[in-house]
Design a binder for these strands. Structure first.
Lengths: 178, 178
DNA sequence: CTGCCTGCAAACTCTTTGCACGAAT
DNA sequence: ATTCGTGCAAAGAGTTTGCAGGCAG
């Protein structure tokens, strides 16, 4: 079977998936979804879990567990580090959050929007500490074909490109640097 | 620009790169190469570093730092954990070893044969704890095009597929399990 | 009420580092 | 003789876990 990448760079490189809408109305809706999800799983809806959920879904960029702790504590200062670490797997396993491990020791997280695929590559700028999320559906095709050859069933795949920012190195400035 | 994957599965999926020849003669040659490399860099050729080098290049599969410590101690029991951890970066930065991080907390290493590219994907069997190294030159093309789009220069790329072993799950046996 | 959930702090894993001794050049 | 390399043990970072008390259902 022949496998080809999309024809143009424009098709290959998407902007990061839009985070879920925020603001009073849609936050309430997302929250309700979270509530029912938890109930359905036989898990309790605690104030701490709600605060962590709200904090996570207010983010538009990648965040770490430690950052999430800060954000959640701003909503409910009773939230502890342990509860953040215990809630993160719940949210990732249920596809509410996506976990991104770029091999730096700490894991990053990102709100996962409805219907967004897991066929996403990352470009990591080593100079600007930025992670770009890029749609890469061919990862699925690759994972399938390569696994089949080995009599395996693919579960997840990841594709990451680490890169330097020449503009930063040469001029000391980069519009993407925060 | 149009980018295509190789046409057949056979072309896409290579066997893991052959480890360097082992045995008296070629080990001596590899060792000599190591010696001259170290000298050239102004680094001292110590018994510990030689033991670590020999231990690493006797391996045909991925190994961890801890395993390398064991193997090296079998050659020279004065080798310490600290020296292993201090020697590993030297060997990876000089492309003697390849470092593989599959996000499990510990890093894996593999002897790198001469001229082997760094365009290598991994298929990780979650059931059999096996890592398959697979030549994937299109990673370079992808890294280049995606980086260019962002005004970045690619440094490294990694592509990993995690998979299940159906045979193991169904029959409780797998020829690949060690 | 029952038992899941919580905060706290200790434990854990892998890796790095400060220090004084030791050995390669 | 220098100076780099070494072992030891402690420190470090990120994450997990045991326990006694707390709150959702």
């Amino acid at each position: 079977m022949f496998v080809a990448l999309p024809a143009t760079a424009d098709e290959r490189i998407d902007t990061p998936p839009d985070p879920p809408n925020i603001g009073a109305v849609t936050t309430a809706a997302a929250r309700e979804k979270f509530r029912s999800f938890m109930t359905q799983k036989g898990l309790r809806v605690t104030n701490q879990r709600l605060a962590i959920f709200d904090a996570a879904f207010a983010q538009r960029e990648h965040f770490t567990a430690e950052q999430l702790l800060d954000y959640a504590r701003a909503i409910d200062d009773s939230v502890s580090r342990a509860t953040v670490y215990r809630t993160l797997p719940i949210m990732t396993e249920s596809n509410l959050l996506r976990e991104v491990d770029i091999g730096t020791g700490e894991k990053f997280y990102l709100p996962n929007q409805e219907g967004s695929s897991n066929q996403v590559a990352q470009v990591i700028c080593l100079d600007c500490d930025k992670i770009f999320e890029i749609s890469a559906p061919f990862m699925g095709w690759y994972g399938n074909s390569v696994s089949q050859k080995l009599n395996l069933t693919p579960v997840t795949q990841r594709l990451q490109v680490s890169a330097r920012c020449d503009q930063w190195r040469q001029t000391g400035t980069c519009p993407r640097r925060s």
